[in-house]
Design a binder for these strands. Sequence first.
DNA 1: GCCGTTTTCGGCCCGACTGTTTTCAGTCG
Length: 601
Amino acid sequence: MAQAKAAVWKTSNNAYACILAYYTYSRLYMNKNDIVDILEDIAVLLELKGENPFKIRAYSGGARALEAMEENLGEVIAEDRLGSLKGIGSALVDKIQTLYATGELAYYTKLRDSIAPGLIEMLEIPGLGGKKVKKLHDALGVESVDALQKVCELGKVAALKGFGAKSQEKILIGIANRANYAKRHLWWKAHDIARPILEGLRALPEVDRAEIAGSLRRLKETVGDLDFIVASAEPEKIMEWFTEQDTIQEVTARGATKSSIRFESGLQADLRVVPSEQFAFALHHFTGSKEHNVAMRQRALAQGFSLSEWGLKEVSTQELVVGASSEEELFSLLGLPEIPPELREGMGELELNAMPELISSDQIRGVFHNHTTASDGHASIEEMAQAAADLNFDYLGLADHSKASFQANGLDEARVFRQIDEIFRFNESDQSSIHVFSGIECDILSDGSLDLEDSTLEALDYAVMSVHSSFSQSQEEMTKRVIRAIEHPATTMLGHPTGRILLRREPYQIDLEKVIDAAIANRVIIEINANPSRLDMDWRLWRRAAEKGLMCAINPDAHNTEGLSYFEAGVNIARKGGVPKEQILNCRDCAAVAKWFKDRS
DNA sequence: GCCGTTTTCGGCCCGACTGTTTTCAGTCG
């Protein structure tokens, strides 16, 4: 349901008008994902209409069936095979074909027009579903969140049959916290909250096993909520411990085997306690992703089994197959090698012949692209080097800003040479337990030229080139600009290639396919900027880019000593992208790195 | 609205939890 709500939000009002105009005037066929969104919208709208729940389910089921279909939609329609998909009957065939061919659907337009947009927004309030929203609308004439707040404050909701004082209070709290609750959270911050809870759970004597599931376990860059899965024969005591954590703002559900809590940041956490024999299945199910689970269930069905969080059943007899004590065994029951959680995104991981070897943090020998007090950092060369040594690194790269980044106290030519000198003296001194490479984070100016003289860049060990200005250029201009910088002989690495700030700033327009090809052709490294708010370049692009030969560097972009530890977030992304260690510069020793800087091999 | 079929319509995934009601409806995942 959460997904259906999101879909409505996505295609509501103006957005839908844009999609419609796009397909109406472009003579393009509507793509599969837009049709899936519309089917999900219809399901939500029907819910608000108080329609037959099975009809509603038929629409969301149809959306899922369409989404899971791997073949080309145009071909399937042309060959008249749409109706043979399970979950898509004659009515949906008609609607999907109409949408595909015209981009429009009168049934949908009429349905949308009959429902106040405010009602869809009301579904975002926890505890309110289609039926309750309909009741609030029918009984009290409520058509917006604002109106709902007013009737709650007047006590009218509590007087409604089926509601009560508690429901009214919950709605008011839900309205007040709506922005927070809808938020996603950076993996790094969510992990900080989750780790002590997981450790606490594991320390309880009643707990056999405990894991964190969901997108946190899959190492997604942002996380919606936390899912803890625990194996135990005594759920009561675990529930008690979980719901009495002092970091909790609110307990939103507390049952015998399932509880939900909310932290001050708005982050929600669910805990499920299952018997030990179900643990592997529950952990796998709640780790997801949804797409991965769909693919797994399809594979099971093809072998005569039905897979769920409870276990693996024989379809013909409905009897449980022999259990699995681990996820590895679960995968093996379906003839698969164990797929690491971070690869479970429904992106063809079931079809991989061999699982890629994923790197680990202890293979990282050092990091590049970090700042000192010379520009906008908060620690000196010595302090940063000591912090790097404390992390057991063999080397540290320092890359302060160049002069165009005036706001960051960027270095001009003279200051660059002074810093090179300081780093040289540091490396020669007794206090250096690790080697410091002298680098720069040089601005790529708006025309693609570089912010420092060639002779200055050549005096450095390496140079990271980054865009820090003119973000609103067209995709064509930006792509050309960045590729020009990549083609400069002094360029060692490209910094944060899209400039995105997660949950805050969209990436700038850039054709990364072309950028990747140019980087490969020029032996230029693209970084994984490991700042938890960036994680740029995105993991979704890495598998294919690495297969084509792109080199990677994991760069914490640290502005203080603590920031060096962000490299762990970059390791997560390299794992998720399946980048092999041979193509990660940080996995090489100091001499090999120096060699790469010299001749790029 | 889909499916399967005893072909013309009945059943549809389901368990956990909350709140309101006192046996159940609605929400959530």
